[in-house]
Simulated assay, not measured.
Amino acid sequence: MSTGSPQAAQDADPGFDTADPRAVRRAIREGRFTGFTNLVARNYVQGNLIAVPADHADAFEDYARANPEALPLLGRGEPGRRDIPAIAADLDIARDTGGYMVFRDGELVETPRDASPFWRDDLVPFVIGCSFSFEALLQRHGVRLRHLEEGDVSAMYETDRDTVAAGPFGGKLIVSMRALTPADAIRATLISARHPGFHGAPVSLGLPEDLGIADLERSYGGHGMKRVLPGELPVFWACGATGQNAVRAARLPLAITHYKAHMVVTDLPLPEDYA
């Protein structure tokens, strides 16, 4: 699968409007944009994709509702349908994310750009709130996000904290980390706490050991900005990758999720809380 960098969003094809979620989805669907989605459609909500067979869908929704910090539900589709009209008018969720992970019996078997060949009539898609949305809100309030300046994404880590299990779904909490100055960490906590739909307030500030994280260099998936400079604190938020972890542990016969940093771009506008 061909993927791009966050910087690619800034240098995207000038033939489409990178601020318009519909234009972004069309460009992804047509293969004209293959980069990470964290710097496009920044005034609109983005989400994690998790699609599971219909006979496991209610249990997954129960799992999400039992763990709302990590898995705030933005939308649920119908079996076999590739649209969720409540969050986007023209969404084809099997083609518009631009990067997918296909799991069989808990094992990753494919990372296609287009998930259409793998879609089944019994798959139910869920869209979960994403930290890309609150990053845009943090920047509106002047919080410096060094990983964006460096053309990177936030690192993720598996913690030692158990989630609340439901049906076959369970496992450890996954968190995302941003390196912030103490002043920005306070500001970011106050801002994100107002937005539970995008993971809410941090679960830990400055203490990776509190989450059982022994080495920041060993991130979940091996990617993201892991360096914390002098004068910065590692700040950790619950992460939607928790759901991906739970789906893998459940060893479902088939599950499809987004590929790292390639999110579902919705038509839902971000809150206008500039104060």
Rank of each mutant, 00 (worst) to 15 (best):
L216G: 12
Y220Q: 02
Y274V: 10
G170R: 00
P53F: 05
Q46G: 06
F236I: 05
L74C: 06
E107S: 12
M156F: 12
D13K: 01
R32K: 08
I191Y: 01
Y157K: 02
S219R: 00
Q7A: 14
R22D: 14
R120I: 02
T163P: 01
G106R: 10
E61L: 07
T97C: 15
G142A: 09
E158F: 00
A183R: 12
D13H: 04
A188I: 06
P168V: 10
W237R: 10
K172V: 05
S131V: 12
A88N: 12
G206S: 05
H223S: 10
R81P: 02
Q7L: 14
H223M: 11
E149F: 01
V264S: 04
N43H: 13
G77R: 08
P14W: 04
G77E: 09
A88K: 10
E272L: 05
A27K: 04
A54Q: 11
S154K: 04
P72G: 08
Y220R: 00
L123Q: 08
H262C: 03
A250D: 12
E135G: 05
L268E: 14
D58T: 11
H262G: 00
R29G: 15
N67M: 13
R65I: 01
Q244H: 13
H141P: 01
L205G: 02
V109Y: 13
D273L: 12
V247M: 11
P182R: 15
L74E: 12
K172H: 07
I93K: 14
T257F: 10
E232F: 03
P125N: 07
A185P: 04
T111M: 11
F126G: 03
A64C: 15
R22L: 09
